[in-house]
Amino acid sequence: MAPAAGDVSREAILGAVRRNRPRDAPVGAPAAPLPEVPDLPDAFARSLEALGGRVLAPPPERAVQVVVEQCRSVGPILAWSAAELGLAGLDAALAAAGVERLDPAVPEREPGRGEQLGRLAGAAVGLTGALAGIAETGTLVLASGPGRPRLAWLLPLHHVALLSRARLLPTLESAIESRPEVWSLGAELALVTGPSRSGDIELVLTRGVHGPRELTVVLVP
């Protein structure tokens, strides 16, 4: 059987690369020093606030109430599952406050796909957890998966993320080293650093271009 056209191109390209790649041994350079980040919650908050995000740090007994307040707005919410949010009593409190939760499932194809996307676009708040937080940059580490819709951190104008203090790490490098399981968790892993923004018109900073205009991180126990 003749090889598929794709295999021929693969061999042609890899063969040309092999023939032409540099012969000299690379010079190399040692790893560069990383910034020291002493107080993680404080550094995280300062980094994120500098980008226009907000960080709330309620006492543990008030965490549920604070999250509900953030979600009680003009429209329904698009949220991660209760198990993924991991804040005991939150589901019941949201229901009691009359907050409407959309079903996040989007069919892979028509029928129903476009219609469901349209419905999700009506969400006012996206509520997610976070697998880690990076203090140096004010970054949330998010991953897709069952119970973790990615559209929750992309479609609504306001993204509310619950971040456990224990999951704060100083740098991206430390997150790669100390939390290897996070990086293969889902089909999409997102590092989100502040609300959506653009400088494409004269480099004037504008927020909420395609993603959320507001980002609120609630630090939970």
């Binding site: 989007v106 999409e188 892993l189 997102a190």
Partner: peptide
């Protein structure tokens, strides 16, 4: 860091909502 730094590993997986 840019606001969105995505790492995409394959298409949607079974059980993924989107």
């Amino acid at each position: 860091l840019t606001v969105y730094t995505d790492l995409i590993r394959g298409p949607r997986r079974s059980g993924d909502p989107d």
